[in-house]
Amino acid sequence: MTPRLTLATASRVLTQLRHDHRTIALIIVLPCVVLGLIAWLFDGTPVLNQFGPVYVGIFPVVVMFLVTSVATLRERTSGTLERLMSLPLGKGDFVTGYALAFGLLAIVQALVLVAFTVWVCGMDVAGELWVLVLCAVLSAILGSALGLAASALARTEFQAVQLMPATLFPQLILCGLAMPRAQMPEVLEALSRVFPLTYVVDALGGVARGLAFTDIASEVGLVALFIVAAVLGGSLTLRRRTP
């Protein structure tokens, strides 16, 4: 890997995004609209304060996953990936470049979403605000990283869109939102431990209950590890030579 090439790739991806105002607007505005709806729906109840922080982490995962997996798949189908693989660009440069560009977008998205839910929707965060911001940013980056890793499996855009439900729905069901993990059948509880979304929800649930950063540091650390693993996995599954 060469930092110069990684940065050139990240900057190219960001330039592409800059040309696409509609996508940027969707990425930034859509999660805010969803959170706004939830706040309105449960107006006058403690639901937003209880679950708002968790949703602030979950919607960005889904949005960033989709955007990233489709963007990298487009690179495959347009032939530009084939050209890049014939050029002096490392596989790690390619994947990390994408991760950096979408990570930056993820940070903006998370900041806007937290600001919107706290100041516009009036969510009362029991824990510290900076911890919520940190978790929201990490979960958005996680979505990107998982999208990068998963796109290696897709051959068409139809498949890429299917990857989102295939990889995220089981995680959403088992992450502890649908049922507290302690009450799950043993096998499913064990399964939930290998899913990154579980730790996102654990960490953000902690923030909602007013836990300090030190109490959820291990969950946050695990999410960061999953991000690194997904980016590594994405670089390793990328093939310079294809059949």
Binding site: A8, T9, G79, T80, L87
Partner: peptide, 21 residues
């Protein structure tokens, strides 16, 4: 098939490939 980025300008495309080389 032309393997360049459709959503970038001509110069932006070439700037990226020049950077890689």
């Amino acid at each position: 098939a032309a393997s360049v980025y459709a959503d970038l300008t001509v110069t932006e495309n070439l700037r990226y490939f020049a950077a890689l080389l």
